[in-house]
Amino acid sequence: MGRVTVRRQVLRISDGREMRRQDALAAEEPLELRVNGRALTVTMRTPGQDVELAHGFLLTEGVIAGVEDVRTARYCDGTDEDGRNTYNVLDLALADHVPPAQVGVERNFHTTSSCGVCGKAALETVRVRSHHDLTKDDAKVSVDTLISLPGKLRAAQRVFDSTGGLHAAGLFTSAGELLVAREDVGRHNAVDKVIGWALMSRRVPLSGCVLMVSGRASFELVQKATMAGIPVLAAVSAPSSLAADLAAEQGMTLVGFLRDASMNVYSGQSRVDR
């Protein structure tokens, strides 16, 4: 498997003094996802939990609906200049009943807006593709529980401690119990790994769960949570306008600026116990 961290020599300058030392960087390498032997997409990720990432990606992009839709997942012969397997090519074989995936699945639905797709069309796309009705999820989460989540997620970020350069996503119960946490250079990859873990554990739909993410809440992350049936998404930073629109459209509780003892609840306020 690829390395999660890479050591590099750096020149450290502090208070006018210079020192050369080794520094740990978060590894970033391409992962090519193939479906039935055909290249589907390439994402830049931190190596590790690649099979979870692939399952989460295929679920949240609507290629599969359940873990039984994937027959096998195996690394292909992606080699470096020395002929060693880089583990950067992963091929998933779909079950016979699953329609072929479209080559070139885009990371974000809204990245195609330059081609004439508006926000309304993006919302409609997710509405049609999602198999889960979040409006029927009556989960409740307390303010105190929400306030505790950033600290719990941060405590689970082992690689961040050595590099300071990774995003994180954590899946919690409505009572604040951490089910799984994943790190990656890409926030969307961390979420795909979490959802892929849940899918492979046969926990999808993730009714009554809270997805906590570092950074901001984008349209893409709301879309992924919707596709996995997650009723509550919380982020330490701001949501985008389209993320807030989609959360409201889907009946999701969206929490932003979750820091210290404060937060903004942008939609689904009825799930938050005050």
Results as ranks from 00 to 15, higher is better:
residue 250 Q to C: 07
residue 196 G to W: 02
residue 156 A to M: 02
residue 223 Q to Y: 10
residue 238 A to F: 12
residue 228 A to S: 13
residue 174 S to G: 10
residue 249 E to T: 12
residue 149 L to I: 07
residue 226 T to I: 15
residue 214 S to T: 15
residue 168 A to Y: 03
residue 189 N to C: 11
residue 233 L to Y: 06
residue 164 G to N: 10
residue 250 Q to M: 15
residue 178 L to S: 04
residue 157 Q to R: 14
residue 229 G to S: 13
residue 210 V to S: 03
residue 177 E to T: 09
residue 167 H to W: 08
residue 230 I to V: 14
residue 233 L to G: 06
residue 168 A to Q: 07
residue 144 D to C: 11
residue 158 R to N: 15
residue 152 K to P: 06
residue 170 G to M: 03
residue 165 G to N: 06
residue 150 P to M: 04
residue 148 S to F: 01
residue 250 Q to P: 06
residue 181 A to M: 02
residue 217 A to H: 09
residue 239 P to T: 14
residue 182 R to G: 00
residue 190 A to D: 00
residue 165 G to K: 04
residue 147 I to G: 00
residue 235 A to G: 10
residue 173 T to E: 01
residue 190 A to M: 00
residue 205 P to Q: 06
residue 176 G to P: 03
residue 160 F to M: 15
residue 202 R to Y: 08
residue 233 L to T: 04
residue 164 G to F: 14
residue 205 P to N: 05
residue 245 D to P: 09
residue 196 G to R: 02
residue 196 G to I: 08
residue 230 I to E: 01
residue 229 G to M: 12
residue 229 G to P: 12
residue 186 G to R: 08
residue 155 A to N: 10
residue 200 M to I: 03
residue 223 Q to F: 04
residue 204 V to Y: 05
residue 169 A to H: 03
residue 231 P to G: 13
residue 172 F to G: 00
residue 248 A to Y: 09
residue 235 A to K: 00
residue 189 N to R: 06
residue 221 L to K: 06
residue 195 I to V: 07
residue 144 D to Q: 13
residue 210 V to C: 09
residue 186 G to E: 01
residue 156 A to W: 02
residue 161 D to H: 13
residue 166 L to W: 02
residue 169 A to F: 03
residue 221 L to Q: 13
residue 166 L to K: 04
residue 202 R to F: 05
residue 152 K to G: 05
residue 214 S to W: 15
residue 194 V to L: 01
residue 180 V to D: 03
residue 206 L to Y: 07
residue 205 P to R: 09
residue 210 V to N: 11
residue 181 A to Y: 00
residue 247 A to D: 04
residue 227 M to Y: 04
residue 175 A to C: 02
residue 153 L to T: 12
residue 187 R to H: 04
residue 148 S to L: 08
residue 232 V to T: 04
residue 229 G to F: 11
residue 181 A to D: 01
residue 154 R to D: 12
residue 144 D to T: 11
residue 198 A to W: 11
